[in-house]
């Protein structure tokens, strides 16, 4: 079974077609990079797959469940980390983990152990009782990721998880992604850092609401005769009419 499958998935807002009949699939255990310029439709597509937004037409399945009719069931088997930090600032690190673990239905006696394990893995031993608002951005992102996978979902969706931090911090974040992938969690990640695209098993590049290319990074570079993913991206996205800076 595919982890994610989309068939002609479309979302329009009035006359504007944000996502235009995209079809693709993601294998289980894969790290799938979902690339595209700003405004290409990445976040909209991801929100449909997570059950936050209703598709205008087309179909999608996540963990074998129909995103149109079974979106609440989909939510139990996925994790999601939004572009904007969305944990509760006025709760501590431990309380945020406890809240989401509880909502995902982890039994109370497991939550404490789970929290300890998570914090040790992140190296957050000292920050257990720190208010989340006092954490530096890079730490907030790592915490948000850990909370997104606190219930060991089959798939995790990450929307530009490393925006605004330095390359070393981004690198450490990707170590967490690899650890999750090793445990069998499928990772669906959007980014516009092309060095991060290199870490993915496969990438798709969205241009103006459509998927313009989809393959392994090495294969894309080879077929376009490009030296880096950066160049691949520029070659494919140069015809884009919308978005950009």
């Amino acid at each position: 079974m595919k982890a994610i499958e989309a068939q002609s998935l479309t979302k329009s807002f009035g006359d504007f077609v944000a996502v235009d009949r995209i079809s693709f699939s993601v294998e289980e255990g894969e790290i799938f990079g979902f690339l595209g310029a700003n405004g290409a439709g990445k976040t909209t597509a991801m929100r449909m797959l997570c059950g936050l937004s209703k598709p205008s037409s087309g179909f999608g399945w996540v963990a074998g469940l129909d995103i149109g009719r079974q979106s609440e069931k989909v939510k139990a088997s996925i994790g999601y980390m939004s572009q904007k930090f969305a944990l509760y600032d006025d709760l501590t690190v431990r309380e945020n983990i406890r809240l989401y673990a509880g909502i995902y239905g982890l039994p109370d006696r497991l939550i404490a152990g789970k929290t300890d394990g998570l914090l040790a893995g992140l190296g957050f031993g000292e920050e257990r009782e720190t208010f989340v608002r006092d954490l530096p951005l890079g730490w907030k992102q790592k915490l948000a990721f850990s909370v997104a996978i606190v219930h060991e979902p089959r798939i995790v969706f990450l929307d530009e998880p490393t925006g605004g931090v330095d390359p070393a911090t981004r690198r450490r974040f990707w170590e967490l992604i690899y650890q999750a992938a090793e445990r069998g969690i499928t990772v669906f990640v959007t980014t516009h850092y092309m060095d991060e695209a290199e870490y993915c098993d496969r990438v798709s590049i969205m241009v103006d609401g459509r998927i313009a290319a989809l393959d392994e990074p090495a294969e894309l570079k080879r077929s376009l005769g490009a030296a880096s993913m950066d160049e691949v991206f520029r070659l494919i996205a140069r015809g884009a009419k919308r978005g950009g800076e």
Binding site: C50, K75, S82, F85, A86, Y104
Partner: peptide, 13 residues
């Protein structure tokens, strides 16, 4: 406004 509701909405709550 703060965006925290989105994290809540993506859970099966």
């Amino acid at each position: 406004e703060s965006g925290t509701i989105e994290q809540m909405n993506v859970t099966p709550v």
